[in-house]
Every structure is written in C-alpha cells, then in structure tokens.
C-alpha cells in the first residue's frame, strides 16, 4: 500500500478544515496549501480533489462562487452552515482515528 492510499480517507476532513481556516479557496490553492503545510509529503492529485469537491458541493457541504480572474473564471469553494457542522464531525472522527492508530502503533504514547 502506498502513502497516497493511506491518506485517501483523510482528504475530506483535511479539505473541510482548510476551508474553515481560510474562508474560501479554489482548487489549485487547496493543493498548494496542503503541499506546503505537509512539506511536500501529501500531494493531492487533481483526480482526487475535484470529484471530492463536487461531491461535497452536491451534498450541500460546500457552496461555490465564480469570479473573473483576468482572462479566466475561478471557482471558489466555502463551507455552508451544514458544512461547518460536518467539518467538526469529520475532524473529530479523524482525531479518533489517529488515537486508535496510536494505540496500535505506540501504546506507550497513547
């Protein structure tokens, strides 16, 4: 199993947390922010990011705004009210997951 598969399930809480911290973001910005924060360890591919963003948008977790940037149009994502609740839930789940792994991998620290 490569590390990309390990991170796959964590993408949703990561994106929700980022959007909660930064207000509104666009696709490329999200990939760069994650890359920067993890010092290049986690590189979100376009193939993983956009389907997830579109699913969250369809579920009402995210809302979008289109803006003209020079010669092109940019799509900004931000959390809806439901999205803010969803973010807290997802981050808590991720925290629990991390603690469970800690119990298995390093029982002394846990």
């Amino acid at each position: 199993m490569n590390k990309t598969s390990l991170y796959k399930g964590c993408l949703e809480p990561i994106i929700l947390k980022l959007l909660d911290d930064n207000g509104r973001m666009y696709g490329y910005e999200i990939t760069q922010k994650v890359k920067e924060a993890t010092a290049g360890e986690l590189n979100i591919t376009e193939g993983a990011l956009y389907p997830l963003l579109h699913r969250l948008e369809a579920e009402g977790v995210l809302e979008v705004e289109m803006e003209n940037i020079g010669n092109r149009v940019r799509k900004y994502y931000s959390l809806t009210k439901a999205g803010k609740k969803e973010k807290s839930k997802a981050v808590l789940e991720l925290e629990n997951f991390k603690n469970t792994l800690q119990l298995l991998l390093n029982p002394k620290l846990a």
């Binding site: 666009y26 696709g27 490329y28 376009e46 579109h54 092109r72 940019r74």
Partner: peptide
C-alpha cells in the same frame, strides 16, 4: 462548461 472552467483555471495557475 463549469468542470472545464475549473480545470482550465487550475492548469493556468500551475
């Protein structure tokens, strides 16, 4: 169109 617009912006910025 909306999907393509988003990808165009992504590649343009990159």
């Amino acid at each position: 169109y909306d999907l393509r617009t988003e990808l165009v912006d992504h590649v343009s910025e990159a």
